[in-house]
């Protein structure tokens, strides 16, 4: 599936942990570049250089992983 080469996703800081987002970005590093900045109540994640040859939606999968990692980290922290 071809997909856009760049995208920006906004992940709310009350719901996503920065380390979890970074971890997800590392997982997908071979398939896109990620830049994470704080933007008010959100983390703005700029996704660029998305590999057009990859099957599947890299950005959406990245978001799922960021959420999953957040849950895992919150569980460990408690």
């Amino acid at each position: 599936m071809s997909q856009a080469q760049t995208a920006v996703v906004r992940l709310h800081r009350a719901l996503y942990m920065q380390q979890a987002i970074k971890e997800a970005a590392n997982t997908f590093a071979d398939f896109a570049s990620f830049k994470i900045v704080r933007d008010g109540e959100h983390y703005a994640v700029s996704v660029s250089d998305i590999d057009g040859e990859v099957e599947g939606d890299v950005v959406a999968e990245f978001c799922n992983f960021a959420l999953h990692n957040t849950m895992q980290r919150k569980k460990k922290r408690i």
């Binding site: 997908f28 919150k74 569980k75």
Partner: peptide
């Protein structure tokens, strides 16, 4: 211990997600 934390929905340490590398293979 880990069942006392109220996060029991995560008591599936295998995780649901199939490893990303398995799911997304470069066409090349």
């Amino acid at each position: 211990d880990s069942s006392d934390d109220g996060m029991d929905f995560l008591d599936d340490p295998l995780g649901i997600a199939v490893p990303w590398e398995d799911k997304f293979k470069k066409k090349s």
